[in-house]
């Protein structure tokens, strides 16, 4: 049995114990995710600090498709593109003319979006899920994950809201609009061709 990772965030330990006793909501969550074969929407993003001060705003588009395919097109505050075909995860920062490519499998926990495209129980076992009214509160069991907590809300068009809470207790709230559930999305949307003149930072071998 592998030694448990050094606990990076001891101050969260006590909070985690309480949560583990809460009723497990994963079955209900997986039922919601099972409805979503594909999803497309615009998002408005707001980032708040612990005192609910607005730190940053953003907007853009999100495409999801089973399994592990997603496209996150950030327009504001800066043009960025995150694209995964399940094998490679490309991150393109347009203004910096930089592309990083990662192994998609290794990044599943870090980007939250990949999680929304799979109902794989083995993956979801690494998360503790609590169902409260129609909101699901999701905690990675690995406290080193920069995403400290994820909150998901659903409606008839699929995902209505996603909140990512980071280790500084800051909340990044994504509200989805013009959402379409299970639209036709060509797999080409999840492939990325590196623009000319852009240097590539290949992080896959790690």
């Amino acid at each position: 049995q592998q030694a448990p990772p050094a606990d990076f965030a001891p101050h969260l330990k006590q909070a985690q114990q309480q949560r583990l006793s809460a009723p497990d909501g994963s079955a209900e969550l997986l039922a919601e995710l099972a409805r979503i074969d594909s999803f497309s929407a615009r998002y408005q993003q707001q980032v708040f600090d612990q005192q609910q001060q607005l730190l940053q705003q953003g907007q853009g588009k999100l495409l999801l498709k089973k399994v592990a395919q997603f496209r996150f097109e950030g327009e504001e505050p800066e043009p960025v593109l995150l694209v995964s075909d399940g094998t490679n995860l490309w991150f393109y920062n347009e203004l910096l003319e930089q592309v990083s490519v990662y192994n998609a499998q290794a990044q599943v926990g870090q980007t939250a979006f990949a999680l929304l495209t799979t109902t794989d129980p083995e993956l979801w076992q690494q998360y503790q899920v609590i169902a409260q009214q129609e909101v699901f509160i999701i905690h990675p069991l690995d406290t080193n994950n920069p995403v400290q907590q994820l909150m998901l809300a659903f409606n008839e068009n699929g995902i209505s809201e996603m909140t990512v809470i980071d280790i500084n207790q800051q909340q990044s709230v994504f509200r989805f609009s013009d959402a379409r559930l299970n639209p036709e999305i060509d797999d080409k949307q999840f492939q990325f061709t590196v623009p000319a003149g852009v240097d590539i930072d290949d992080q896959r071998q790690q």
Partner: peptide
């Protein structure tokens, strides 16, 4: 404040009368 595309803060720096501090990973 430097934050990644998800809005997650990579680091925060303040330099004030109370001196300078960094907020990193909580």
């Amino acid at each position: 404040r430097l934050a990644n595309f998800l809005g997650i803060s990579l680091f925060e720096l303040t330099n004030s009368e109370q001196g300078s501090s960094i907020m990193l990973r909580g």
